[in-house]
């Protein structure tokens, strides 16, 4: 339980740090004074729905395998985080259904496979190597190690593995605010910016019937 409490402390540190970063960012936002032509709200809704689909962006449609691996990797991470919460609940004697555990195992396996694939791609792809630094490699490795330790614990059910899993998770939480992994918070902020920009200017969501219209307000 001591380890879990340390991990919990790291998680709190992580969330507070990310929260402060986002607060600083929000406090420095400037109002756009131009007259809107479309709707920022519609743009933001688009950014989190249709705009995330493969057909909306070449980074997905031209690279379906990497796009899918990326999504599965992130789902796996989420599953592993959920699992560590569940274990905490188990330790506090709340029953967890078998199907849920089975689902988590499956998601972590797929996530780990995807994450490892993306890591290998970063090592072998010349173009990707050119835009990568230690932080990129480490971020991927620490997350993969977290998934792996969670998986090993799931199969071994050993106390030692449980400790290792929480230690890795704690390190991960401590690292998130400092390196590339802080995109976990900035991703959402970026999508909001994306939606605001294209929505306000009437670019997205596409309105093929809009011809010579008067500006609308958002």
């Amino acid at each position: 339980m001591e380890i879990i409490n340390l991990t919990l402390t790291a998680a709190v540190f992580c969330f507070i740090s990310l929260g402060i970063m986002i607060l600083i960012t929000v406090s420095k936002l400037r109002q756009d004074l131009s007259e809107p032509r479309g709707s920022s709200t519609a743009g933001i809704i688009y950014a989190f729905t249709k705009g995330l689909m493969p057909q909306a962006k070449e980074s997905a449609s031209h690279h379906l395998l990497s796009y899918t691996a990326g999504i599965l990797f992130h789902i796996g991470i989420l599953a592993a985080f959920c699992f560590s919460v569940i274990i905490y609940l188990v330790l506090t004697e709340i029953a967890i259904p078998d199907w849920l555990l089975f689902l988590i195992v499956a998601l972590i396996i797929v996530g780990l496979t995807s994450g490892s694939g993306l890591l290998i791609k970063r090592f072998v792809n010349k173009r990707l190597r050119a835009i990568s630094n230690f932080d990129d490699y480490f971020s991927n490795i620490i997350v993969n190690v977290f998934l792996l330790s969670t998986l090993i614990f799931l199969f071994s059910d050993s106390n030692a593995m449980l400790r290792i899993m929480y230690i890795v998770e704690g390190i991960l939480f401590l690292y998130i605010p400092f390196g590339k992994l802080r995109h976990s918070a900035y991703f959402f902020a970026t999508r909001i910016m994306f939606g605001t920009f294209y929505g306000r200017r009437g670019v997205l969501p596409a309105n093929r019937k809009s011809v010579g219209n008067e500006p609308e307000t958002s």
Partner: peptide
Amino acid sequence: LLDGKMRVYMNACVHCGLCADS
């Protein structure tokens, strides 16, 4: 020039390299 928007953009790229064809 590092207003809120720029701070977001400076932290956003995940170095996935998938924008190359664009």
